[in-house]
Nucleic acid binder design. Structure first.
Length: 378
RNA sequence: GGAUGGGUAUGCCUAGUGGCGAGGGCAGCGGAUUGUAAAUCCGUUACAAAGAAACACCGCAGGUUCGAGUCCUGCCCCAUCCA
């Protein structure tokens, strides 16, 4: 892997990351397809059309259904889903948070009760690495715990210490797996994850610790889980400077267009979020004038596209009124069009961000973009 | 003309066969959603804010009863069937 910094504008970075599956231009928004597909009947042909650079899938979910061993036997996730560009796999760490009622955390790892059929699943750092190696993703994430933002100080410190120990095990296991003869992607990359809730000292100490471990990239996790936007931005302000500047910085699970604009301004390169796809499935669409809910009656005769001038597959051919009708009729095409539009909106915004940084007008671009979206909220 | 089944609030559909200030669904409107247990979930959709005061035409009008959406009688309307 090679992280090449092209230019900066304030703290905003414009870079590119070379991987075995192609070059990633950053800042980048990864499109979330948890189970090896973006929900809403989106194909990989669609992804190529809407400018997706990186697809993101999930270790826990693919392990539970349909199984990483099966996918390895098929030839890996790239071949399985017919996607030859980069894939990042999340480690299952987020499921420690989202499936909190269905798991027990121990030093060796996490015992899950399958959310599908209730059977017991053990996942520790080694298991997570093994699964991600079987999937053959471009970038594997370290197995961590994402603690709730309201957890107490002692809990967060213990959790972070354990996450550090798990990271050491992940690194060791990844090195071993990458050296095996039948490994699908022998150049699989490993990103470590910074945790620490909204406690500056824990965040900073943990950032320093993992920065010394020579990983391929560094993620900031445990944000956008209940804290305020101001707290999140503050964590970025104090944490990002302690992560290696010659490696990618990834803010996990974030976020709204405004969150991304602010985080880019604080030096973040990688993003991912379920919002564009989930909101698209719920008829909420992003525009430069804010978010619309196409289910509203006021669109019943609206012949305009979601956004004037948008080149996405939905806006090039269909009206708001027709898409509203598809939702009313519960026809899948409605969801599909909105998801495509939203992902196109995010991917296009990232392209605009990259251009603005290159031209050293990021501050101006950000202010204008935020003002437009805010004005439309009324 | 006869038989049978129905008419439930704000548009539609429906639960309810003696204690009902009547439950639910759809449609409408609003909100939530951030490394996806989410094509999901939550509000709201008469008056009243808790009172011896109120009680929305439960098709309409009477009746029985302490008490009727519920039982009885008559009428109106709708659906299906028979003439």
């Amino acid at each position: 892997m090679k992280y090449q910094l092209i230019t900066t504008d304030g703290r905003a970075k414009r870079a590119q990351v070379e991987t075995v599956h192609g070059t990633i231009q950053t800042p980048v928004f990864m499109n979330v397809g948890t189970v090896g597909v973006i929900k809403g009947a989106v194909s990989t042909d669609d992804l190529r059309q809407i400018g997706t650079q990186v697809e993101l899938s999930n270790t826990y979910h693919l392990h539970v259904r349909t199984g990483d061993k099966l996918i390895k036997e098929f030839g890996g996730l790239h071949r399985f889903m017919n996607w030859d560009r980069p894939i990042l796999t999340d480690s299952g760490g987020f499921q420690v948070f989202s499936l909190a009622g269905l798991r027990k955390i121990k030093e060796e790892g996490v015992y899950f009760q399958s959310h599908i059929d209730g059977h017991r699943i053990f996942m520790g750092p080694e298991e997570s690495m093994q699964i991600q190696s079987n999937l053959g993703s471009t970038i594997a994430m370290a197995f961590d715990e994402c603690p709730p933002s309201r957890a107490d100080l002692k809990y967060i410190q213990n959790s972070v210490d354990r996450t550090t120990r798990w990271l050491e095990r992940c690194k060791k296991e990844m090195a071993r797996l990458n050296s095996l003869p039948d490994t699908i992607n022998k150049e699989q990359l490993l990103f470590g994850i910074n945790q620490g809730g909204v406690v500056d000292e824990i965040r900073i100490n943990h950032a320093k610790t993992i920065a010394s471990m020579d990983l391929d990239g560094y993620a900031i996790g445990g944000l956008a889980v209940g804290e305020t936007h101001e707290e999140m931005y503050h964590v970025l302000d104090v944490t990002v400077p302690h992560l290696p500047q010659n490696k990618p910085t990834y803010l996990m699970g974030v976020g709204t267009p405004a969150n991304i604009l602010e985080a880019v301004d604080r030096g973040v390169d990688f993003f991912d979020c379920v919002y564009p796809s989930r909101n698209g499935r719920h008829s909420h669409v992003y525009t430069n004038q804010g978010k619309l809910n196409l289910m509203n009656q006021k669109y019943e005769l609206d012949s305009r596209p979601i956004e004037e001038g948008c080149q996405c597959p939905a806006c090039r051919s269909y009206s708001r009124a027709y898409i509203r009708h598809l939702f009313k009729a519960k026809e899948m095409l409605g969801m599909r069009l909105c998801v495509l539009h939203n992902l196109y909106f995010y991917n296009t915004m990232m392209k605009e961000i990259r251009d603005a940084i290159e031209e050293h007008r990021y501050g101006e671009y950000k202010a204008k973009k935020l003002a437009g979206m805010k004005a439309g909220e009324k």
